[in-house]
Nucleic acid binder design. Structure first.
Lengths: 215, 215
DNA sequence: TAGATTGTTAATCGATTAACAATC
DNA sequence: TAGATTGTTAATCGATTAACAATC
C-alpha cells in the first residue's frame, strides 16, 4: 500500500469541507476541476489523491457528491464520535474548553487534566481532573487521542506519560519539538509561530513591495 | 535575492525558540548539529537556512547565540511590538482575546471588531468595536495585520474589506480557501483539520499497527 | 599542526503537475 | 458518434540532504 502523508490527508479534509458546501448548494455531482478550484489545487492533484484511496469517478460524468462524501467521512473517521482528552487547563486549555466548535465536527473533549488543584472541578460542563486520575481515565474510557496544552517545560514529560498510558495521537500546542516514543503520532499547532510567520511576510512586503511568495 | 517560503521562515522561528532555551541554560555558542537536533532537522538544513539570510558562523567555532538571536529577532520583526486587530468576537474570537500569550511574543491585539452590537464594549481590556469603525481604525492606527475569526460564509467578504482597507496580512481561522486580491498574504490555521488529521493516523495505526508516516 | 566545523555545490528525494490513452 | 473527463504514467519542480573543500 502507498504511504499516505499528512499533506494528502489534509487535502482530503479540505475536499470534504468544500463538498459539504457544494452539497448544501444543491449540487449532486462534481468534476475534478471544480473541486480543485474550490480547494486551490490542480485537478491532477484531486484525481491523484482520490485514486490513492481507491476512489473512482465516472469518465465524463465526474464524481457523485454524496458517495464521495460518504467515503471521505469514512476515511477521516467522521462516522463515529471521536473522544479526546485535554491536558493542561491553563490559558490556552481553558480557551479550548470554551471553544465548542469541535463538537460539530464529531470530536468531543470528554475530560481535562491539570496538576493545579485550583483548576479542578467542572468547566463548561467538562470535568477538570487531577493529573493522577489520567491513567485510569484513559484506560477505562479507551481514549486514544489527547490535546496537549501545557507549558514548554512540561510538554515532554507529559507526552511520555501519555504514551505510556497508551495514547496514540497528540495534538501539541507547546512551541517545542517533542520526541514521541513508541507508536504515537504528534501533530503541532503553534499560533505564535503562525502569526510570526505572517508578520515576516507583511514586513517583507513593506520593504520590497512583494510578498516574496510568488503566488 | 532568493525567494523565501513559509517553511524556511517557520524554521527560523523554531531556531529562535530553541536558541532562547539554550541561552537561558547558559550556553553561549552552538554548533549546527546541536541546534538541528533540538529542532528536529538536519545540520545541513540549519546551515543552508542561515546562509540564505547571510548569517555566518565561525568555522570550527559554531555560532554565537546572542548574535544569532539578535539577527533572527530582527528578521522576524521581534524587535518592535506588532499590533494586530481581530475580526469576529464569537466563540473562537473570544478565546483569542482571552488567550494573552501573544503578548509575551511581542504581538498585541489592539482591538476586535464584530457585526453583532451585543458583542460591543470592552472584553479583557480589549475594545470590541462595530465593523463600521474598522476602516477608520486601521487607517488611523496604521494596522497591517488582522486575525480573521468569523463564520465561513463571512470570511471572503470580510477579507475583501480588509484588503481594501490596506491590510497586508491575515491569519485566517475559517475553514475555507480564501482568495486575496492585491498584495495580501493569508495564512491558515484550522484546528478542526489538525485534529481530524491526527485522528486519521491514530485510526490508521489501530488497523495496521503502523502510523504509515515513516518516521 | 591535526581535527572539526562551516558554507556551498551537487545529488537525491518526494511531491506536484502535465499529458494523454482509455472510455463513458 | 464526437466530445469531455477520468485515471495513471512520465516529466517537472522544488526542497532536503550528502558530501567535501575551505578554513579556523
Amino acid at each position: 500500500m502507498v504511504r499516505k502523508n499528512r499533506k494528502v490527508i489534509s487535502r482530503l479534509s479540505r475536499y470534504k469541507n468544500a463538498l459539504n458546501r457544494f452539497q448544501s448548494l444543491g449540487f449532486v455531482k462534481i468534476f475534478s476541476d471544480y473541486l480543485a478550484e474550490a480547494v486551490g489545487v490542480t485537478s491532477s492533484q484531486v484525481r491523484k489523491d482520490f485514486s490513492l484511496f481507491g476512489i473512482h469517478g465516472n469518465k465524463r460524468g465526474g464524481y457523485q457528491i454524496d458517495a464521495l462524501l460518504e467515503r471521505l467521512n469514512e476515511i477521516l473517521g467522521k462516522n463515529e464520535l471521536q473522544r479526546v482528552i485535554l491536558v493542561g487547563a491553563g490559558n490556552l486549555g481553558s480557551a479550548l474548553i470554551k471553544y465548542k466548535n469541535f463538537e460539530k465536527d464529531g470530536v468531543k473533549i470528554v475530560a481535562a487534566f491539570d496538576i493545579d488543584p485550583a483548576k479542578h472541578g467542572d468547566r463548561d460542563s467538562i470535568p477538570v481532573l487531577p493529573l493522577d486520575d489520567m491513567q485510569r481515565f484513559i484506560a477505562e474510557q479507551g481514549i486514544k487521542t489527547a490535546i496537549l496544552a501545557v507549558p514548554d517545560v512540561a510538554a515532554q514529560p507529559i507526552l511520555d506519560r501519555l504514551t505510556s498510558c497508551g495514547i496514540k495521537g497528540v495534538l501539541n500546542f507547546a512551541p517545542i519539538q517533542l520526541k514521541a516514543e513508541g507508536r504515537c503520532v504528534v501533530n503541532h499547532v503553534n499560533l505564535e509561530l503562525e502569526l510570526e510567520n505572517l508578520i515576516y511576510f507583511v514586513n517583507a512586503m513593506e520593504k520590497t513591495g512583494d510578498t516574496g511568495l510568488g503566488n
